[in-house]
Design a protein around this nucleic acid. Structure first.
Lengths: 210, 210
DNA sequence: AGTAAAATCATGGAAAAAGGGGAGAAGACC
DNA sequence: GGTCTTCTCCCCTTTTTCCATGATTTTACT
């Protein structure tokens, strides 16, 4: 029985690459691909693969969120995260949301097959490179920010002062200051500059195509 | 006469994808690929393709720098930038360094072929999406920072104060302050927070796999 | 040798953030 | 009912940044 594999990635070239890597594997069945989260969910309502290879960055929502939704609705499907970046914060978030593995886009055919075969057995697969960098800074966990804190954080990065933020979201400047202090403590950062840097590194602010 | 195409990309899946997209094109000849800048340059000493598809992010040096080097040594080779991100700053830097086109990794086979055929004639190709986003903010050019300014910028993002930076790089705090002011004026940012944000967006600070 | 850009240093004052503390209200959870 | 988290608000002091302005030395290029 071939393993049914589905891909969610908005990069046509990557989808083609994976298809080409997997087409000669006889115990793998290519069931299709989606370019965004919505059409992935639509596909799953029709049929369910054994494994989904899921990009972290999707146009409509992050793979991290999609991973959670898929796992809630279809717990039997195993998900392997797919990304260009070997970044601890992504990987951790992805695994926290139920992914069973994480493969970089520079993985070889062999690595990809190892991952698929291992994950389908219910085990966890992390490529050497990934697990090494996870161990390297295993203390570096992602801080948990509240709704309001995230909101204030992005406004800070926009260059707004406490007073401006206060006016914008209709709270007093003191409250903004409190949120700011909590952010500095949680991240943890020594000042605004480092706070913004960490916000980028932990993906609280996106480096998108604006 | 088939167009000789060479790829420089460290993502195996992308290389495979492009190979698969081009293999049925009879007026395109696949001459090989390199996974980093060094082996690309080594290849070029042996033979020269007509076109290089070049990823922006390479492990040893940025595609932006590689583009410049290749164009200096082999001006007859046309280079098409390749990236996941539709980001104005990358694109501009790449074109400034002699690239003839820019294609996103979500491009279709058709778009890729259009790009190759157009560029080989000496014209410039930018995908619709890219040129649209270039026009959208054509005023938004990348600031030119001096060596010292870049140096101070990354230290600021590390969370260091003027005094700390001054001690670290053996100049007075006043000088650091001057650099800081020039940075704020050049970027342009209203304060440190926005400065760090723009530093990320313009790739003066890298969001890499630390 | 001459010029332009970059790097260096400074003063003084206004604005904002950092760091310390305390405290009440609303909701979720057990 | 009690506990926890979140969100809200305030006071005070110190540190740091922001802004304006001006100036000298070093380096790079023609």
């Amino acid at each position: 029985m071939a393993i049914k594999v589905f891909i969610v990635d908005d990069h046509y070239m990557v989808v083609e690459g994976i298809r080409s890597l997997l087409q000669n594997e006889k115990n793998v069945e290519w069931t299709g691909h989606a370019m965004n989260a919505d059409s992935c969910l639509a596909f799953l309502r029709q049929q369910q693969p054994d494994i989904i290879l899921m990009d972290i960055n999707l146009p409509d929502k992050s793979g991290i969120d999609l991973c959670k939704e898929v796992k809630e609705a279809y717990p039997q499907i195993f998900i392997i995260g797919l990304s260009t970046f070997n970044q601890q914060s992504f990987i951790q978030k992805m695994m926290d949301n139920g992914a069973s593995g994480y493969v970089l886009k520079n993985a070889t055919q062999q690595e990809l097959m190892e991952a698929i075969e291992m994950v389908v057995k219910g085990k966890t697969y992390l490529s050497d490179e990934v697990s090494r960098s996870l161990r390297r800074n295993e203390d570096d966990t992602i801080p948990v920010l509240t709704r309001r804190e995230k909101e204030v954080l992005v406004l800070i990065a926009e260059g707004m002062t406490n007073n401006e933020i206060a006016e914008k979201i209709f709270i007093s400047a003191s409250t903004v200051d409190t949120h700011r202090k909590n952010l500095l403590a949680k991240m943890p950062a020594r000042n605004t500059a480092e706070l913004v840097k960490l916000a980028f590194q932990h993906k609280f602010i996106k480096l998108d195509d604006k």
